[in-house]
Amino acid sequence: MAKKVHSVSLKGILDMNNVEIHEITKDGEFVYDLKKILHEFHDKQVSLVIKEENELPTKDMEE
């Protein structure tokens, strides 16, 4: 059966004080209202993933 998928992908710094995501790119800083985005999914079945990325130390950095 065909599906229609509504998704939002954000990558940036989470500011829980203001419920915002701050995305910094070569073109500037962009601020997204996370509460407003989440409200679009109110009363709907969703899947939520929150992921933090960190660089792994290289072998040189461990010594």
Rank of each mutant, 00 (worst) to 15 (best):
I37F: 02
S47L: 13
N54L: 14
E53Q: 05
A2E: 08
L10E: 08
M1F: 14
M1K: 03
M61P: 02
K36R: 13
K44S: 08
L56W: 07
H22N: 07
E20N: 15
V5A: 11
P57R: 02
K51L: 15
E52Y: 05
E62V: 13
V19E: 07
K4S: 12
I37K: 05
H6T: 11
G28H: 04
E55Y: 05
M1P: 13
I21F: 00
V19W: 08
S7Y: 10
V8M: 06
M16L: 10
S9H: 11
V49N: 15
V46D: 08
L56S: 10
E40C: 09
E23K: 01
E40Q: 09
L48I: 12
S47W: 08
V5R: 04
L38Q: 02
E55G: 12
L34P: 03
K26F: 08
K26D: 13
E62W: 14
L10F: 11
S9M: 10
L34K: 01
L10C: 03
T58K: 08
V46W: 03
K4T: 12
H6S: 06
V31C: 07
V19D: 08
V8D: 09
L48D: 04
H22G: 01
M16P: 04
I24L: 01
N18I: 10
V8A: 03
K4W: 10
L34Y: 00
E62I: 11
D43K: 05
K36A: 15
K35E: 13
K4R: 15
I24K: 04
K36D: 14
I21N: 00
P57V: 10
E20P: 02
E23N: 00
K4I: 15
E40R: 06
I50H: 12
M1Y: 07
V46A: 05
E29L: 05
D27C: 09
H22Y: 04
K11C: 09
E29R: 02
N18C: 12
K3D: 11
K4G: 02
Q45C: 10
N17G: 12
I13D: 09
E52T: 08
L56N: 02
P57C: 01
T58L: 02
M61R: 10
D33I: 01
I13V: 12
I13L: 12
H22T: 03
E63R: 05
E62C: 10
P57F: 14
K4A: 11
V31W: 04
E20C: 06
I13S: 07
